[in-house]
Design a protein around this nucleic acid. Structure first.
Lengths: 184, 184
DNA sequence: ACGGGAATGTACCATTTGGTACATCGTCGG
DNA sequence: CCGACGATGTACCAAATGGTACATTCCCGT
């Protein structure tokens, strides 16, 4: 069942991805998604509750996407390439921006962002370690962290420049280096 | 000459690096750095003016640091390692967090952040291309962008985890791969 | 010594904010 | 049919915000 709360949360996610969330105002958001600030308070308890719900929804979406990617993993390279294609999709890119915004908020311990930093990378690495072993590889955790960092750094560049082609070439360079280096 | 405005800006930078800037309030900042919100308006014209000044100061600091690094460059690896050591210093790390915060703000075109996205990477690459040629190398722009992205991605990881050692190992891995790959 | 401009304080303003109290509506179970 | 309960609207509140007007103080050049 799709509760009214879920519907509101979905619309809120879209609005927040498009317009940012650090300066989110209940009234502004409410009128943008066709409700009243009164209703947001009703469903989420407080502004902080709304922020927490948005952050949690973001984390969940990330986890789901990761699970799918890692599930039918052929090679590490393919996983990264698919994730890249997915995250650089114009409809998803705003959520990448949201990710960086929430990162900044969480570093400053803004209410509603509790736990975000911890769930930001470690689950990724755990999942990747497991997936690697499933493929008979014994992955190096430092290398996996490097892979995650490369994606994120290049995504920041995509956000800043608005250009996907350059960073995509850079990613290919990295994957080439990686395969060459690991094949020793 | 150090104007009163500059002194205020310095203190504002410190406060903003420590507490974030997206929800900056003039009164709160003023009382934190020992002045009045009236004085901030006087020296910076408006809240937007203050934000712009902070962003500009950040950009300037980055440019200066980059110039020093690239100036006495021995090898690309050494440049990156020195920059890494500098940026992961506990006293500098808050400004790295500020960088990501401003990135998110600039993506949403918040007033005061004009021009930040353009100056975020391209000058870096130009500088690095020039420095490389000074050393007789002919750098690949895609590879340089990759280097910048790796640093940024790993810095995000340092911010999130509070641990420098893991990301530092990952950076070394990258540099090893890079050297091995470039030496063909 | 004094005139003037920069610097600073005080007091205020309209607007927006998150949150609450209370009334109302709608619908579904008995 | 009606009572109860979830959902929603209206109206309000105190606090905080960016900004302004006006007075005052301080210091430097003449």
């Amino acid at each position: 069942m799709t509760t009214a709360r879920d519907a509101l949360l979905d619309k809120a996610m879209a609005h927040v991805a498009a317009h940012g969330m650090s300066d989110l105002s209940l009234r502004e958001l409410a009128s943008a998604i066709g409700t009243s600030h009164r209703m947001l308070l009703y469903h989420f308890g407080s502004r902080e509750g709304l922020v927490a719900a948005i952050v949690a929804s973001m984390e969940q979406t990330q986890r789901d996407a990761l699970a799918v990617l890692a599930d039918d993993a052929a090679s590490p390279r393919e996983v990264i390439e698919r994730q890249w294609a997915q995250l650089t999709d114009p409809s998803v890119l705003p959520f990448v921006a949201l990710f960086f915004e929430v990162l900044a908020m969480a570093v400053h311990e803004r209410p509603g962002t509790e736990g975000f930093l911890e769930s930001m990378t470690e689950p990724w690495l755990d999942e990747a370690m497991a997936a690697g072993q499933r493929l008979g590889i014994d992955p190096d955790r430092d290398e996996l962290r490097l892979g995650v960092a490369v994606s994120r750094g290049l995504l920041a560049e995509v956000l800043a420049s608005g250009d996907v082609t350059g960073p995509t070439r850079s990613l290919q360079r990295f994957l080439d280096l990686w395969e060459a280096g690991s094949a020793t």
